[in-house]
Computed example of a mutant assay.
Amino acid sequence: MAIAVGEVEECRMITIDRPPVNALDLEAILALEAAFVAAAADRPRGVVLTGAGNAFCAGVDTRAFGSYDRATRHEMVRAITRMVAALLAIPVPVVVAVNGHALGGGFVLMLGGDYRLVADAAGAKLGLTEAKAGVPFPAGPRAMIAAELAPSLLRRLTLTSATLSPAEAVAADIADTLVVPEDLITQACSVAAAMAAQPAFGAVKQQVRGPLAARVAALAASGEEPFLAAFG
């Protein structure tokens, strides 16, 4: 099972659980998409997205991706955009609890959070390493990073595959709060509850993040991937 879903303090807990570093194969991507769709339908008080073990998500499993035939690789690319669209469509607070490495697709998932907590974990790396990994950005993630990152930071992180420490991610305003690892989930649930308690949260989220959600939803619905040929 690549994804675990449970309830903690009235929050929906979605955990990426694919050892050793929670890299995403097609099964995991489809499972995340389904979990996000279910959260949007169920409307729990809040959603906490995290990873099992010592990693949040190391992005696309390049070995699995390379083992797929062409049709399956293209299916996976489109599924990634649908997954991102489903994440952005969740109307309740989404708090991302980054417990370790967040690379490539894992970094994109972090950007999908309405609030981003990162554990002060030794050696943890956060970055957009698609160029180094040999896997370009699907349309959904490309829209996400363009909307969520300052142009100069977007250029540097994507074209150099540079990585940041958790503290550097907070300093760069990519993540919101640096926490000690043992407090990560408790604090994430607390933040989600505090955000949900705001009477106009849903309306304001739609105002602020709705345009991006609509763009990615349209991309997912169309199935159009301008760089699909680059995925082999």
Results as ranks from 00 to 15, higher is better:
Pro136Tyr: 13
Ala131Glu: 12
Asp114Asn: 10
Lys125Asn: 06
Leu117Arg: 08
Leu126Phe: 14
Ala133Leu: 14
Leu109Phe: 02
Glu130Ile: 01
Ala102Cys: 07
Asp114Val: 03
Ala102Asn: 05
Gly105Arg: 00
Gly105Ile: 01
Ala102Leu: 08
Phe107His: 09
Ala119Ser: 15
Asp120Gln: 11
Ala131His: 10
Phe107Thr: 07
Met110Tyr: 07
Val108Ser: 08
Val108Arg: 02
Ala124Met: 07
Ala102Val: 09
Val108Lys: 03
Gly113Arg: 01
Thr129Asn: 08
Val135Ala: 00
Leu117Ser: 06
Asp120Gly: 05
Asp120Phe: 11
Ala131Gly: 00
Leu126Cys: 04
Ala119Cys: 09
Lys125Cys: 05
Pro138Ile: 10
Asp114Arg: 01
Ala122Lys: 12
Gly127Phe: 09
Ala131Phe: 11
Gly104Pro: 00
Ala122Ile: 12
Tyr115Asp: 06
Ala124Tyr: 12
Gly104Thr: 02
Leu103His: 03
Leu128Cys: 06
Leu128Asp: 02
Gly123Lys: 08
Gly113Leu: 01
Gly106His: 08
Gly105Met: 02
Gly127Lys: 11
Pro138Lys: 04
Phe137Tyr: 15
Leu128Trp: 06
Gly134Asp: 13
Asp120Trp: 10
Asp120Ile: 08
Asp120Arg: 13
Val118His: 04
Phe107Trp: 12
Gly123Asn: 10
Leu103Arg: 03
Leu111Lys: 07
Lys132Ile: 12
Leu103Val: 10
Met110Phe: 08
Gly127Leu: 07
Gly123Tyr: 13
Lys125His: 09
Thr129Arg: 11
Ala131Pro: 00
Ala124Val: 11
Leu109Ile: 04
Arg116Lys: 13
Thr129Met: 14
Phe107Met: 13
Lys132His: 12
Ala133Trp: 03
Pro138Phe: 10
Leu111Thr: 05
Gly134His: 14
Gly134Pro: 13
Gly105Lys: 00
Val108Ala: 12
Asp114Trp: 02
Gly112Leu: 05
Gly105Leu: 14
Pro136His: 12
Gly105Asp: 02
Phe107Pro: 04
Pro136Asp: 08
Ala124Ile: 10
Tyr115Thr: 08
Gly105Cys: 00
Ala121Leu: 15
Asp120Tyr: 09
Leu128Gln: 03
Met110Ala: 14
Gly113Glu: 02
Gly104Tyr: 07
Gly123Glu: 13
Arg116His: 05
His101Glu: 05
Glu130Ser: 11
Leu111Asn: 06
Lys125Tyr: 03
His101Gly: 00
Asp114Pro: 01
Gly112Phe: 02
Ala124Asn: 09
Ala121Thr: 15
Leu109Arg: 00
Ala131Ile: 14
Lys132Glu: 11
Glu130Leu: 07
Lys132Pro: 00
Val135Met: 01
Val135Gly: 01
Phe107Val: 09
Gly113Pro: 03
Val135Thr: 12
Thr129Glu: 09
Ala122Arg: 14
